[in-house]
Design a protein around this nucleic acid. Structure first.
Lengths: 219, 219
DNA sequence: TGACAATAATAACACTGTAAAGTAGATTGG
DNA sequence: CCAATCTACTTTACAGTGTTATTATTGTCA
């Protein structure tokens, strides 16, 4: 309505609002960090809203001012995992120009993420896998920067380069992803259940896996 | 102390005890069946002792007379899944004498079990995988009839027959298991997340998988 | 200053698993 | 047959959980 230049009061109001917004984001962040810490300690099943609140000196209900509900907070924890995961894959992608080595590098990066973030991995891909979509949506990385697409691109380019046989790239990507996911998820779950299944054996298995994939997919 | 023949009273007492024991097993079974039904409906997270009790007209605490705690009841539900799973693999093993086809048949049987018992599969191999060991212990199938050993035997014989290259059978088994487990677990979790991931596509992928494994492991 | 919005805390509800104590009825020994 | 015992079960209670509605405190704005 008022089209004249902003008055001093208007400017102050704006900055004040900005400051309050910033403060709000800060406490939101504090809650989130406490939640992450708690998740690292207690895992998915032991994660408790009330304990998170207690750890940072808030009443449980206060959390609801910053997150819709427990799921929403847990998703925020998860989301950070997705970001790191994508970054790890992206880094592997970027630092390996050769299409063949690139596929291997992606598999290794995948493995390393799983082994170093076991709880996150389980939540992201085993307990709440619906969130994969929501995570890439909320970071508008739908188009070409989500973790799935990174792997898909690597497959496409490996096909172009003649490193692996031609075929439906989506199917091949799913095949490769399934394989490495199987190894990682069993590695996290089956310690002491499968014979020969400590961390070094798992790494060795990934070595065999990439070799075998290379042979199996050769043009 | 008394070494004479058992008196009538002693015989009656014994039969009475037997009858009570039988009745006890019956209500235990009733609880277990209600638990299975409830698990099918609500899944792992929604499974509630109190609701199980209510469904069969008991007080929650009564269940503790037949099962140590919630975990114990849930394990009993799980255990039945392990039995069926092992039977399915054993059947695939027995009905396919050819070592090469046998490996494929095991993969297919594995897939079918997962697709037809999604909740059980997730509990058995993703949520409570520690129970794999406890399950084979409690059925004294440790030696040569548990599901892992079935797959291991198939690998050993495929190596003997020259169908797949020689190598550490345990490692090869782990490799094959990882692969099919990866496909199954993603199939159960990632509906609507991965492109092209309905049931028929998953089956097709298993086809590709077995093909690729055959090529990759050729001597 | 008074209306108002934001932030936090209290109280309460409906659940959960689980332990201790109590109770009606069948079983048993004399 | 009767009192003692034992068994199967319930009642009660506790310490948790996520979540909502209500209230109190605070700082911002006209």
């Amino acid at each position: 309505m008022n089209e004249t230049a902003p008055t001093r009061q208007a400017r102050i109001k704006q900055k004040s609002a900005a400051r309050r917004e910033r403060s709000k984001q800060e406490t939101r962040q504090a809650i989130l960090e406490a939640a992450i810490q708690m998740f690292q300690r207690e895992g998915y099943e032991g994660f408790s809203l009330r304990q998170v609140a207690e750890n940072i000196g808030y009443t449980p209900t206060t959390i609801y001012l910053y997150f819709k509900d427990k799921d929403d907070l847990l998703f925020a924890v998860c989301s950070q995992g997705f970001t790191e995961f994508t970054q790890a894959l992206q880094h592997a992608y970027d630092t390996h120009p050769d299409p063949g080595e690139r596929l291997n590098a992606l598999a290794w990066a995948y493995l390393e993420f799983g082994l170093s973030h076991p709880l996150h991995y389980q939540m992201m891909f085993m307990q709440r896998s619906e969130w994969v979509l929501r995570a890439s949506d909320s970071k508008n990385e739908v188009q070409n920067s989500n973790s799935y697409t990174i792997q898909l691109n690597a497959v496409v380019e490996a096909m172009k380069a003649g490193v692996i046989r031609l075929g439906d790239p989506v199917e091949t990507t799913n095949l490769l992803w399934s394989g490495i996911h199987g190894i990682v998820s069993l590695a996290l779950n089956m310690k002491g259940v499968i014979p020969k299944w400590d961390e070094t054996e798992v790494r060795q298995l990934v070595g065999q896996y990439t070799e075998m994939m290379a042979r199996g997919l050769r043009p």
